[in-house]
Amino acid sequence: MTEPLEQRVVTEFPYKHSTGEVIGRFLAGLKDQKRIWGQRVAGQGVVVPPVGYSETDGSAGGEWVEVKPTGVVTAVARVYRPIAQLHPCAEPFAFVLVKLDGADTALAHVVRDDLERLRVGTRVEAVWAPDADRTGSIRDIACFRVIT
């Protein structure tokens, strides 16, 4: 039997993804206004975050609708061993889907504290990244926190 031969390689892809107008304006709202905007879309209601079209019937997205930075958790996944250079933090955290007040779809994000109190149905609110750290990214919302 031949001794196995292996080679370790790390591949890095530095992508710059164009955002287009709708995603770009949504992200500008996070960065410049600290406000969360959805788009009214046929068949889906108020979609947050918006993509500019209906994912169900393909029609163009309609008017902008601001939603609240508060909402209800619809799914929770607690991560106890974060993966470096993939996950957003090194300490245990939770991925959540949050249906923001005024929205009809849920936003995927993270909760960092009060993990033991977090469950489907828990109310949470957005925590903004400091002004200097907001770059026009979904992570301009630093995380969500449990509302007592």
Binding site: S18, T19, G20, E21, A28
Partner: peptide, 16 residues
């Protein structure tokens, strides 16, 4: 609008 988002993809492999 924000024009683009950056994504740094980091993929380790161990080839046979």
């Amino acid at each position: 609008p924000v024009k683009y988002v950056e994504k740094q993809v980091h993929l380790p492999y161990c080839y046979v």
